[in-house]
Amino acid sequence: MENCFICKKHKGENSASDFKIYEDQAVAIYHLDPGDGEVYLGYVFIEVKRHIPGLADMNDEESCAVGRMMKRTSAVYMKEFPVEHVYSFVIGHNIPHLHFHIVPRYKGSPREYWGVKADEWPEAPRGNREAVLKFCSKLSALINAE
């Protein structure tokens, strides 16, 4: 799709493409783009590379690849970072290209910041472009070694 933000990211046509962590034939993983500010470190997206709108549209290869990368990413977070839980969400009402939000909940996060509010915790690790790129590099190496 020519106007799809995620398709453009996969082609390297927007700044969000700078935050790639992993890619294979079926899926890609990107960190949330910090733009000119700061973002919650570890907020990543597992994106099906084929332009499809929802879960029911995945083929077997894509669903296996998504599951494998959810497991691998979560395992790395739990083993290598101060994380006590990893969330996955499919929201899908802003961008009609299937993508999964993978969000770690850092240790010490108060209950009111659990779930979809995990990234709102004011004391959570955050980073600017440089910090996110460093995080991406570390996470990429760990995921590829998993």
Rank of each mutant, 00 (worst) to 15 (best):
N3G: 03
N3C: 00
C4T: 07
C4N: 05
K8C: 00
K8I: 00
K9I: 01
K9S: 11
H10Y: 06
K11L: 09
K11G: 02
G12M: 03
N14W: 05
N14G: 01
A16D: 14
S17L: 04
S17E: 10
D18N: 15
D18H: 14
D18S: 15
F19R: 11
F19V: 06
F19A: 10
I21E: 01
I21P: 00
Y22K: 03
Y22V: 06
E23L: 04
D24I: 01
D24Y: 06
Q25L: 03
A28I: 03
A28M: 07
A28F: 06
A28P: 01
I29H: 01
L32N: 12
L32A: 12
P34V: 12
D36V: 07
V39Y: 09
V39P: 03
Y40A: 01
Y40Q: 03
L41V: 02
G42I: 00
Y43L: 01
Y43N: 02
V44N: 05
F45N: 07
F45L: 12
F45M: 11
I46E: 12
H51T: 04
G54S: 15
G54T: 11
G54I: 00
L55C: 11
A56M: 08
A56Y: 13
A56W: 10
N59Q: 09
D60E: 15
E61L: 04
S63A: 14
C64M: 13
C64N: 13
C64W: 12
A65R: 06
V66N: 11
V66Y: 12
G67N: 14
M69L: 15
M70H: 13
M70K: 13
M70Q: 14
K71I: 08
T73A: 13
T73N: 02
A75I: 01
V76A: 07
Y77P: 00
Y77M: 08
Y77T: 02
F81T: 02
F81V: 00
E84R: 11
V86H: 09
V86L: 06
S88C: 10
S88Q: 10
V90I: 15
G92Q: 04
G92Y: 05
I95N: 04
P96C: 11
H97M: 02
L98A: 07
F100N: 11
F100W: 14
H101V: 03
H101D: 04
I102G: 07
I102T: 13
V103L: 10
V103G: 05
V103H: 06
P104M: 03
P104N: 08
P104G: 07
P104S: 09
R105I: 08
K107M: 09
G108V: 06
S109M: 09
S109E: 06
W114D: 13
G115Y: 10
V116D: 12
K117I: 00
A118I: 01
E120Q: 12
W121E: 08
P122S: 14
P122V: 12
P122M: 15
E123M: 06
E123K: 14
A124N: 03
P125V: 09
P125M: 09
G127M: 00
G127V: 03
N128C: 03
E130P: 00
E130T: 09
A131S: 12
A131D: 11
V132C: 07
V132H: 10
C136P: 02
K138E: 14
L139C: 05
L139Y: 09
L139M: 06
A141W: 03
L142V: 02
L142P: 00
N144A: 11
A145M: 06
E146A: 14
